[in-house]
Design a protein around this nucleic acid. Structure first.
Lengths: 152, 152
DNA sequence: TAGACTATGTTTAGTAA
DNA sequence: TTTACTAAACATAGTCT
């Protein structure tokens, strides 16, 4: 870079208006929105990490960009924090039932011999509850929808 | 407040050292740590909300204080973002079997027939092991993707 | 725990690469 | 999408209430 360019750049820098105040509403200009997203995402992760370090807290930050791309950050680990959150809120994730497809009643009818063999089950109450629950769920495959031979 | 007090306060203010630089490591003084936690937690939530608004992103922030108290913040909603995260990562929460049990109580009444049929079931060991296997899942995959051997 | 306060440390808008 | 740059906006440490 020659002296003239350097001079040019110097003057360009001098004209910077510095950080400008903005309203907290959608950034309309796409290029600005992307830059803002990238910067603030990093800022958020940094802040979350600092909070953990400074105060001994466990944190999880999950971000989906406007294009649904996933970014996450957690201390000690996103999934660990999520497990604790789900246990605390006693919440069943929506996507669990969506992964189960077959109807339990049909399964039971077709697996009569298997059902016959499951007598005197000590945990019948628990299993009954689980099955009752699963029967109300839509979607996915079932754990007993497996070749019976392999399960014996 | 009279003029003398105002004067006093003015002078008190003058002695403030303002924000001091700190190292990012555990704040040892308990009272300071609590104050820092509260302030930074609020700051983090604010930043996450702003990111969502500015850039059309979906965010979830989950924090457990050092005393395990839960705080969370999400746009549009923590659970919605979590569902998307779990779907994206194809992860089943570690505690999902207990979640199922906890959520199933209300459904049991309508499913008496299943409980009845299960009373005749044999092979309690097989089922017990399956349940045990499900309880031992550590994430990273679906329990129904386990090798059949693990379910015996 | 949650506010208020001020001086200062930190983040970031606008821009270009 | 990320980085570099500057100056202004913003967050917050320390302290008291």
């Amino acid at each position: 870079m020659d002296a003239a360019n350097q001079q040019q750049q110097q003057e360009t820098r001098r004209t910077s208006k510095g950080r400008q105040k903005i309203e907290i509403k959608r950034v309309e200009k796409e290029s600005n929105r992307y830059v803002t997203f990238s910067k603030r995402k990093n800022g958020l992760f940094k802040k979350a990490t600092e909070l953990s370090t400074l105060c001994g807290a466990e944190t999880a930050v999950i971000i989906f960009s406007e294009h649904r791309k996933l970014f996450s950050c957690g201390q000690p680990d996103v999934d660990q924090v999520l497990d604790r959150y789900l246990a605390e809120t006693e919440r069943v994730p929506n996507n669990f039932p969506s992964l189960i497809k077959n109807n339990v009643e049909n399964q039971l009818a077709n697996k009569q011999e298997y059902a016959e063999s499951l007598k005197r089950l000590e945990e019948e109450q628990t299993v009954a509850k689980m099955i009752g629950s699963m029967n109300n769920m839509n979607g996915g495959g079932f754990w007993w929808d497996l070749p019976i031979d392999n399960m014996e």
